[in-house]
C-alpha cells in the first residue's frame, strides 16, 4: 500500500505545482484558448474545410487539433518540472528516500498526463461555449479519451530525455517546438490539400495527421475517417510510446542508476 501512496503524493505535488503557477496556467491553458479564439474568429472564416467555410465550420474542423496542440504545449512544462527537480537536487533527495525508483519518474509521467487532460478539458469547454457540438457516442468518447491518454503519454515520454539532459529548465522545454511544428504542418488546424505539394506530402505522412484525423472522427461522427487512419494513428502512438519509453529508460538508468 505504501508504493501507490507514494506515487499519489508525488503526483499530487507536481499537479499542484502546475495549478498554482501562473506561468504554467497561462502557457498551457490560457494561450491555447487565445490561439483557438484567434484562429476561429480571425482566420477561421477564411479557411475552407470539408464542412464548409465560416467560423462555426472551422471550429468544428479544428477543435480536435487544438486539443492535441494544448497537450503538446503542456509537454514543455513536463520537461521543465523534471529538469527543475534534477538541477535543484530534489531527484537526488527522492532517490535517497525509501521509494521504489520507478515511482520517482512515474509520478512525473502520471502528473503530466493528468495535467494535459485537465488543460484539454478546459480548452474543450471553451470550444463548447464557442458553439462546438460533438455527436460522439459513449464508445467513441471513451476511445477519444484513450487516444488523448496515449498521445499525452507519448509526448511525456519524449520529454523525459530532454528534461534529464538539458542544462536548465529554459532549454528543457525546447523540444516541444518540434511537436508544435508537426501539429502546425498537419491536418490539425487546416486541411492538407491546400498546402504546397512537398509540404502536403510531409503533412500527410507524418504521425500527427492520422492522430488528429482519428481524434476528429471520434468526436464528430459525421466526419468520415477510414479505419485505416485509426490503425495508422494507433501504430504511431504505440510505436512512439515504446521507442520513447526505451529512450527515457536508458537515459534515466545512465544518469541515475549506473552513475
Amino acid at each position: 500500500m505504501k508504493t501507490p501512496k507514494q506515487l499519489g503524493v508525488l503526483t499530487g505535488r507536481i499537479i499542484r505545482q502546475n495549478l498554482t503557477n501562473a506561468d504554467t496556467i497561462i502557457t498551457v491553458i490560457a494561450m491555447p484558448i487565445f490561439i483557438l479564439l484567434f484562429f476561429v474568429y480571425v482566420m477561421g472564416g477564411n479557411i475552407a474545410t470539408a464542412g464548409g467555410s465560416g467560423s462555426a465550420a472551422y471550429l468544428r474542423y479544428a477543435l480536435p487539433g487544438f486539443l492535441l496542440l494544448t497537450m503538446a504545449m503542456g509537454s514543455a512544462y513536463t520537461s521543465m518540472r523534471i529538469n527543475l527537480d534534477r538541477t535543484s537536487g530534489f531527484l537526488d533527495r527522492l532517490h535517497s528516500l525509501p521509494i521504489p525508483r520507478w515511482v520517482i519518474l512515474g509520478s512525473h509521467v502520471l502528473a503530466s498526463v493528468i495535467f494535459m487532460l485537465i488543460a484539454e478539458v478546459a480548452v474543450f469547454l471553451v470550444g463548447l461555449l464557442m458553439g462546438y457540438r460533438t455527436n460522439a457516442t459513449i464508445s467513441s468518447t471513451l476511445m477519444f479519451i484513450g487516444l488523448s491518454i496515449l498521445f499525452g503519454l507519448g509526448i511525456t515520454l519524449l520529454a523525459i530525455p530532454f528534461s534529464l539532459k538539458a542544462d536548465n529548465a529554459a532549454s528543457a522545454g525546447g523540444f516541444s517546438y518540434v511537436l508544435l511544428m508537426l501539429l502546425f504542418v498537419s491536418s490539425a488546424l487546416m486541411p492538407t490539400k491546400g498546402m504546397a505539394k512537398p509540404v502536403q506530402i510531409f503533412a500527410d505522412y507524418q504521425p500527427m495527421t492520422p492522430i488528429v484525423n482519428t481524434a476528429r472522427g471520434l468526436l464528430d461522427q459525421a466526419t468520415a475517417v477510414g479505419q485505416h487512419t485509426g490503425i495508422v494513428a494507433f501504430v504511431w502512438l504505440i510505436g512512439g510510446i515504446l521507442v520513447f519509453a526505451l529512450l527515457s529508460y536508458r537515459v534515466y538508468v545512465r544518469m541515475f542508476l549506473t552513475r
Binding site: G89, D92, R93, S96
Partner: peptide
C-alpha cells in the same frame, strides 16, 4: 539502507 539514512544535499531542495 534508505530507511535508515537521510541526505541533505549542497543546495536546499
Amino acid at each position: 539502507v534508505r530507511e535508515l539514512i537521510s541526505l541533505n544535499a549542497q543546495t536546499a531542495t
